[in-house]
């Protein structure tokens, strides 16, 4: 059993308490949530959650199934092994003096990031990218002195045409999960959306 980071994406009803239902279930099953991001989707009344958790495949598959049972969760899939694009956004406030400011701007440029606010003793950097990119920029900026960081946590979409959460096409999509044998494909097969 290898412990790995999993990205679960869920379509949920846009109702009060849904985030609580999802996060409390993860807590109950003893999962530490790396990040959780919630936002609106292309469909009214539905929100999308991107949940990053660590655990072995079987445990994550178990919790995915438990989450799927939450009535407000319309659909949830593990896209860890799918080709996908994952991004997060970070805002970083860095100490900046007149002498260090230009060096910071150079680094920010290399990372194709933006300076979004400047004051006499600091700059605010906005960076978007995968986790690695955000982390390496933060490493470089650390030398200047970081005052504050705000990170959104990951959001992710699978590459190509139909996504596994796309409601009308979900029938065809085979979710590539193999945790406890055929269990997951069995669970996935007949829900008539």
């Amino acid at each position: 059993m290898t412990i790995a980071r999993h990205i679960l994406v869920a379509l949920v009803e846009d109702r009060p308490g849904v985030l609580n239902r999802v996060s409390s279930l993860l807590r109950r099953r003893n999962f530490n949530i790396d990040s959780i991001a919630v936002g609106h989707t292309e469909q009214p009344n539905l929100s999308r959650m991107t949940i990053v958790v660590e655990g072995d495949d079987a445990k994550v598959e178990q919790v995915r199934k438990q989450l799927d049972k939450v009535v407000d969760v319309v659909k949830i899939v593990d896209i860890t092994s799918n080709e996908s694009v994952a991004r997060e956004l970070a805002l970083v406030k860095v100490k900046a003096t007149a002498s260090s400011r230009s060096e910071i701007i150079q680094i920010v440029d290399i990372f194709r990031s933006n300076i979004v606010d400047v004051s006499s003793d600091s700059v605010m950097v906005e960076v978007t990218g995968d986790e690695e990119k955000v982390n390496s920029l933060l490493d470089l900026l650390r030398g200047f002195g970081i005052r504050e960081i705000a990170r959104t946590g990951r959001i992710a979409l699978t590459r190509g045409g139909a996504g596994p959460l796309q409601v009308e096409e979900s029938r065809e999509v085979k979710v590539p999960k193999q945790a406890p044998k055929a269990a997951s494909s069995e669970a996935e097969s007949p829900p008539d959306w």
Binding site: E61, D68, A183
Partner: peptide, 8 residues
């Protein structure tokens, strides 16, 4: 009937 019981 409960898929979450499979393999739990």
């Amino acid at each position: 009937i409960d898929p979450a019981e499979i393999g739990k």
